[in-house]
Write a protein that binds this DNA or RNA. Structure first.
Lengths: 196, 196, 196, 196
DNA sequence: ACGTGCGGGACACCCCGTTAAT
DNA sequence: ATTAACGGGGTGTCCCGCACGT
């Protein structure tokens, strides 16, 4: 059965498997065995590509964070179209999907993982920092377009916005998420910011 | 040596021990063994007073949440004194202390615990809901006193405020918390809400 | 299923199980799991009573060696009865049974075990030293009775005798041992020693 | 690529590497990986030349045994020179060097290996049989020269002698071997055999 | 009712012998 | 011939829950 072929995309496969496990079993179900089993890969593969399990998790978070630039640029491209609240609601809901939420739970639960990420992370909570940045960039763009009040403080609005949505999503019970609630929240935040 | 003497305050002792463990070892260190060891109590004691470990954790969260009414009334009593942002900063920083943050990490990590709390909790995230309510009540009181803009939406401001602080505190690395940052955040939120 | 009762004879049960495993699967089959499974005992029991597996093995060898005093005194009691070669053949064959041989293989194979035993063992190979001592004591007793040549050097004959038998038994292939071969060897050795 | 590297050369390299590993790490350190790493060749090379690892080990023992004919003829050539005990001490000490002892530990520990060698080996323990034969031939030669008692039983003395030395060497703790002890043992055995 | 130790399972990490693809 | 994966196993550790004996 051994396939001597190098799994060039071993990282990708393992990351993908880990996300599926997170979706299916939640953060507490994400064990090294669950990952390799889900990936259909030998146990040793994970330890060949990563120093230990926490190292793998750190890589997973990094990978996920890096991939956030795609929705970030997509959101930026939407500046001027649709509605600000709507654009934000869709983008943030997607960025803070179940997988990302599970990863955040993982990071806040596993001290060792958090400390390891601390060493290589610029600042802020791993995934949250990226999403906050994404929102800030978008808000600034809309501000230039005049769709957000000129005196709104994007640097303050962004974490508030993400913090609110994060709490909203953390309250999920497995039921389908409610983008409408997110949109309403966005509108409320923006209303207070765009109020004359 | 078995004493046979009933630990009438077993719950209290276990809860206190659990909080000390959370402070010392973080959420991932909170195991049933750690709790009983810290409490200086036999392992079986926990199992005699609670159906299982998740049941104990649920009780712990409930206990902690119930005790939040003390700072809630204290905060309410401060209405009209000091500054709104200052009062909020102190109260929220204390309410979202390391122990509460660790409990939140626990709840978001342990699916079983979250589902169990779901059944007995009115609504929202266990501890967060109480804190949000506390803030809302205070904001309404200040609104009546005219120290918060009459058109501010306390129902929307409160979760935003707590969401922001939660993210800020979740980013901690063990260093002493920064109440100043919380106060600044409060001021920012309130400023946007009190703007004409 | 858990029986909270302390296994007072945990050591004995584990040692007995280890010997059965050695008989059935040979030295290479003696793993910690095999021992606990064979003993019908939880895995943790072994590690509760011994620091690690090598520590358990050292205890096993010690226990086995300590029990050799029974056949030693029994052999000594036979002095003057039967034939010298016959008495020796029976005693040595029994002392160097399959279990003892497997333990010797274990000791010579596992460097860590050998070094650990080295620290607590008076001198010589763990089990061999005891058996050699047993033979020497018996030969001296027979010498006093005049059934062994007065000028025979028991201190030299004993290791020679055990060395020969050890090699003979090490050559086993699983077939029933041949006490006759041992007896013949004994007679040869004694003949050379009792020759005038 | 036609490298011209002969198959037998690979065997030699692997065998040499295995012996170095045995010297350095003992019998328990002799794994297929350790061999190929030490030889500086790929893992697959071993399995290209041998059916499996036990097959390689069998080949190793065979190779080592076959090379024993050199010291055997050398010892035989010493008949009549020096002292009998001295000649034997040197030859046996060398033949039962650390590598040979480690191989014997390997054979007695690995049941599968022992059974495999059983099928292709004339009789007796793989290396021991050769060494015993070497001693016997030498003793017979000395007997013809009159330096060993005519009524000495070389067929019985040889295994006794090797058995004794084997035990003596098995007791090693890594310290430099003691040829003097071997020589004393030889003298003792021969004395008992040449006694009138 | 408490103190203690076991049951049983899981986990991380590691190593081994082996084989398929490059 | 080289490489890396593979499946299996082993060890030590933990954890939760439980049933004894005190």
């Amino acid at each position: 059965m051994p396939t001597g072929v190098s799994l060039r995309d071993a990282d990708e496969r393992l990351f993908g498997a880990a996300e599926r496990v997170l979706l299916r079993d939640g953060p507490s179900g994400l064990t090294s065995r669950a990952v390799t089993d889900e990936a259909g890969v030998a146990k040793g593969v994970l330890h060949r590509h990563f120093a230990d399990f926490d190292d793998f998790l750190a890589g997973l978070v990094h990978d996920r964070a890096a991939r956030l630039d795609v929705p970030a640029t997509a959101l930026l491209a939407l500046a001027g179209t649709g509605t600000v609240a709507g654009n934000l609601a869709v983008a943030v809901t997607e960025a803070l999907g179940p997988v990302a939420m599970a990863m955040l739970a993982l990071v806040t639960f596993r001290d060792e993982l958090r400390h390891r990420l601390r060493e290589t992370w610029p600042a802020g909570l791993p995934l949250i920092a990226e999403i906050v940045g994404m929102v800030r960039a978008y808000l600034l763009a809309e501000q230039e377009l005049g769709r957000v009040a000129a005196d709104a403080d994007a640097g303050m609005l962004s974490p508030m916005l993400i913090g609110s949505v994060h709490l909203l999503l953390a309250d999920r019970t497995g039921e389908p998420p409610v983008p409408d609630a997110v949109r309403a929240l966005m509108e409320g935040v923006l209303a207070s910011a765009t109020r004359r």
